[in-house]
Amino acid sequence: MPSLKSLKVRITSVKSTQKITRAMKTVAAAKLRRATDAAVAGRPYAERLEAVMASLASKVTVGPNSPKLLAGTGKDDVHLIVVATSERGLAGGFNTNIVRAAKVKADELIAQGKKVRFYLVGRKGRAFIRRTYPGMIVHDHDMSHVKNAAFANALDVGRDLIARFEAGEFDVCHLIFSKFQSALVQIPQVVQLIPAAISQPANDAAPAASAAVEYEPDEETILAELLPRNVAIQIYRAMLENQAGFYGAQMNAMDNATRNAGDMIKRLSIQYNRTRQAAITTELVEIISGAEAL
């Protein structure tokens, strides 16, 4: 049985851990609000861009002369997987889920006989991917100095990706990130980044209505202008969603940790009190039997 002193020390240490986890939870909750605000603020731009792209793409016929970002390289051999994770841990299964989704996708592609390469954004996926797929990481984008992802960061990644694409490093590019559903639910998602996957307008009325639209310069030029922007905006969205999801997951994980610490304190306190009482009882018994012996 542990001594009274060692129990007391353990209770104090668990209490201070609980203080830390509780503080982290509070901080994560505050940051979560800011991150969701940013994600919501970024939505109108992404939505409009997507609408415009869809209406343009329905007009432009994909041919050998159309932009490569839309039509692809015509091959399907080398796949680049962009894995966007968070910069820090202590967020439960958040990063594990993203990395696992990346692994599923990679294994599926490898099984089809494709070549797979990784491009990492965020620090937390590095160790696992380096271990599981040695030598397959082409680039590791360091974001550890960035506190809140700005569009400029996404632009950097986007430009780098496009440069690599144009250099013929890969044919297809997938982006993996965690979609922010709610503070409790984050769903890892795989999005095809290059060639652009454009959703066709659902109803036929939309293209008919915009048929009278004038284009300045022409459709192809606008589309060529828009496609790289679309890559950047998708990455930006992934960063924002990841950030919001990360804080959500962290808040959740820290809430659990605080509760576990509370349970542990309760259990240790009971044990401490029992031990104390046992010691007192033993002492009393000793005194009484000592007195009787006299």
């Binding site: 639209v213 004038e214 300045e216 606008i222």
Partner: peptide, 10 residues
């Protein structure tokens, strides 16, 4: 101005 014809421009 108001009532401008639909345009898309870079």
């Amino acid at each position: 101005l108001q009532g401008h014809a639909p345009v898309m421009a870079v």
